[in-house]
Nucleic acid binder design. Structure first.
Lengths: 346, 346
DNA sequence: AACGAGGATGAAAGCGCTTACAGGCCGAGC
DNA sequence: GCTCGGCCTGTAAGCGCTTTCATCCTCGTT
C-alpha cells in the first residue's frame, strides 16, 4: 500500500540505490534516469519514510526543546524564536514540556534518547554536575537557555544587572523602602536578581532589610513562578506591616512578572493601587504585563530562542567546538505601575 | 560506542530476540534470563534507539500538532491540554507552528509524512475537500480542533451561540447600536460568530446595520487575528461616525480577544474608555483579557486540547471508527469592559 | 517409560532507506 | 586497436530493532 523506493525502482527500471540518489541530490545521475525516476515517484505519490531515513542516516532532523511547564508565557516566547530559526534549516521541533520542575528530569531523559532527536535545547533548567556529565558523555549536542554551565553552549540574560536596574529605577523615583518578592530559593535566576537588588540598595546607601524580602512558600512545584505565589507573597509582606503602615515598603520588586501580577492583585485587595500607593516592578515582560501596565525588565525571549536554535544547528554541523556563551542585557520598560502614563500596543 | 541490543545479547549470552523480548514485556522470558539481561543492560547503560524502534514497529510514538502561528495564546493553551493528555500515554509532541495561515499547508505536509508521527492534530485550520481527501487516503489519523469536517474527528466550540450570548449580554445592558469587529472573512469561526451576532440582533428586534460592522483589512496573513488588526478595525469604525457621535455604536463585539484588545487601545486614543463611553466584548478569553478587564466568551482551550488528544490516541488504538464530533459551549465572562467591577486572579 | 504439551529461546527475515564498493560502458589518448 | 579515466548504475551490506516460526527442553501424564 505505502509506496517505497522499491516500487519506484521497479517502475523506473533502475535500482533502489539510484532512486535514493535522485532524492538525495548528491551523486551523479544522468538527466534521463533522474527524470524517469521523478516522474514515476510523482505518479505513485512517493514520500520518503522518515523513520527509515533517520535510521539509515543516523540523524532524525528533529530538535527537542525541554521546558518546565507549557503554561508559561516566557517559554512560549522562547519556543517561538526557536521555531523561527528551525524552520529555516528544515528541522522539526519536539516539545517536552514538563508539568512541574520536578518532572523536567524525566522529560530530558526522553528528549536525549538515542535516535529521538539530533540535539536538545534545555530551557530554564540548571544542570547538576552529574547530569552534565551524563549529557556530555552521551555526546548529544545541547544548548542551555536561561541557565548556565561552563561545558555547554548557552544563552541567558544578565539577571543580576536586571535586578540592579529595577531597583535603581525605584530609587530614582524616591523610594527608600523597597520590598522584594522572590520565587523559590532554588531558582538561580531569581537569586541573581536578588543579588542585583542588593547591589543597587548598597550603591544607593540603603540597608538591606530582611523584613522587606519575602520568598514565597507556594507553588513550589513551579519554583514559585506563578501568579498565586506572587499573590501570597505580597499578602505576607503586607501582613508584616499591619498596624504600622508608615513602615510599609513604598515599592516592590518582584523577581518575575507573573509574581508581580499576583502581587498587584493582593495589593489591590488591600486597597493599595499602583502607582498611587505603591510602585511595582517585575521581570521578564510577558505579554500580560503590557495590559497590566506593569513596569518590568524585558528579556528578548524570542531572540534568545532564535539564537539558541542557531547555536544548536551550528553545533550539529561542527561538533566538538568549545562552548560559547551569550549574555543579553535586560532593558527597563517603564509603565503605569511606576507612574508612567504610557500605553502601548505590542 | 553506542550500545545496542547486540552488545547486551553478547554480554548476557542470549540472542537479540530475547533481549528485545525483555524490553518489550510481552512474551515470556524466564526470570533468570530476564534478570541477567536487565543487569547487563543496566551496566552498559543501554537505551533503545528510537528511530530503529519506529521503523521496526511501524509507529513512532509521536503525535504532531499543526497550528497557525506559535504567537497565539489560544494555540498555546490548546497545546498545553494536548501535552497533558499525551504525557499520560507516553507519546511525544511534535509541534508544527506556521508563521502565517498560508504556510500551514506546508507544515501539515511535513506533519503527515510517512514515519514522522502516528497521528496529527490540526488546529484552527479548515480542511478543503481536496486536502481532506488526501488525508483520508493517507490513512493517517487526524483530529480537528476548532474546525469541522464530517469525515474527521473534531472538537470545537459553538461559535454562533457565543456570538449570540455576547450580543444578548450587550442588549441586556441597554445597547441598541452594537458594532461588530471581524477578522478575515476567510475565518469560519469568525463568520459563525457574526451569524450569532446577527441572530441576537434579530431576536432583540434590532436591525442589522452594515455601517456598524467592519472586517479588518490588516494582517491578512493571520486572518486578522491580531491586536493591530483590531486596532485598525476600531479606528475604521470610529471614523465612520466622525462628526456625529450620537450615531456611534455604544458597544462593540469583537470576534476575537486579540482584536478586542487592540480595539480598546484605539478607543482609548480616541478618548473613549470602556465601559464609561463604550462597552466591549471579545471572544476566547486568553490570558491577557483578564488583565485588560475584557468581557469575553470563554473557550475551554486546554480542555479542548486534552479531549482532542484523547480522541486521537483512541483512534490510534481503534482505527476505522466513525468520526465523532464534540462541541463545547462558550461561557460568558463578564468583566470591566461591560461594567463588571470584578477582579480575578486566574 | 514413552509421549505430548507448553514454555523458553534462537534463527532469520524484515522495516525502508543510505552508501561504500564494484562494475560496466564509452570516449579520449597514444 | 588498446588502454585508461570518468561517469553511471547496480550489488549488497548495513542502520538497530521487532517478530514470526521453528527448535529444544522440561515436565506432567498415562
Amino acid at each position: 500500500m505505502p509506496v517505497t523506493i522499491y516500487d519506484i525502482a521497479e517502475g523506473a527500471r533502475v535500482s533502489i540505490a539510484t532512486v535514493s540518489r535522485v532524492f538525495n541530490g548528491h551523486a551523479r545521475v544522468s538527466d534521463s534516469t533522474r527524470d524517469r525516476v521523478l516522474r514515476v515517484a510523482e505518479s505513485l505519490g512517493y514520500e520518503p519514510h522518515a523513520s527509515a531515513q533517520s535510521l539509515a542516516r543516523r540523524q532524525t532532523g528533529l530538535i527537542s526543546a525541554v521546558v518546565p511547564m507549557m503554561t508559561s508565557a516566557f517559554f512560549m516566547e522562547v519556543l517561538r524564536g526557536v521555531q523561527d530559526r528551525l524552520d529555516a534549516s528544515h528541522h522539526d521541533l519536539l516539545v517536552y514540556a514538563a508539568r512541574t520542575v520536578a518532572t523536567v528530569e524525566g522529560q530530558l531523559a526522553r528528549a536525549v534518547q538515542r535516535g529521538r532527536s539530533d540535539g536538545v535545547l534545555l530551557v530554564s533548567t540548571p544542570l547538576s554536575d552529574q547530569r552534565a556529565a551524563t549529557l556530555a558523555a552521551s555526546g548529544r549536542p545541547v544548548v542551555l537557555v536561561d541557565s548556565y554551565h561552563p561545558d555547554f553552549d548557552s544563552v541567558f540574560i544578565d539577571n543580576r544587572r536586571g535586578g540592579t536596574v529595577a531597583v535603581e529605577h525605584l530609587v530614582g523615583r524616591g523610594h527608600r523602602r523597597i520590598g522584594l518578592l522572590m520565587p523559590s530559593e532554588e531558582s538561580a535566576p531569581a537569586r541573581q536578581r536578588r543579588d542585583g537588588y542588593l547591589d543597587a540598595l548598597a550603591a544607593a546607601g540603603l540597608d538591606a532589610d530582611d523584613g522587606l524580602m519575602v520568598t514565597t512558600d507556594w507553588d513550589h512545584e513551579h519554583h514559585g513562578y506563578t501568579r498565586f505565589a506572587g499573590y501570597r507573597a505580597m499578602q505576607a509582606l503586607l501582613a508584616r506591616f499591619e498596624g504600622r503602615p508608615d513602615a510599609r515598603p513604598t515599592a516592590v520588586f518582584a523577581a518575575a512578572d507573573v509574581m508581580a501580577l499576583g502581587a498587584l492583585r493582593a495589593a489591590g485587595e488591600a486597597g493599595l493601587r499602583a502607582p498611587r500607593d505603591l510602585d511595582v516592578v517585575g521581570f521578564d515582560d510577558i505579554e500580560s504585563s503590557t495590559y497590566a501596565g506593569l513596569t518590568t525588565l524585558r528579556q528578548p525571549m524570542a531572540e534568545m530562542g532564535r539564537l539558541a536554535a542557531e547555536k544548536l544547528v551550528r553545533r550539529l554541523e561542527t561538533p566538538g567546538a568549545p562552548a560559547q556563551h551569550t549574555v543579553f542585557a535586560p532593558t527597563l520598560v517603564a509603565r503605569q505601575t511606576t507612574g508612567s502614563p504610557v500605553l502601548e500596543l505590542a
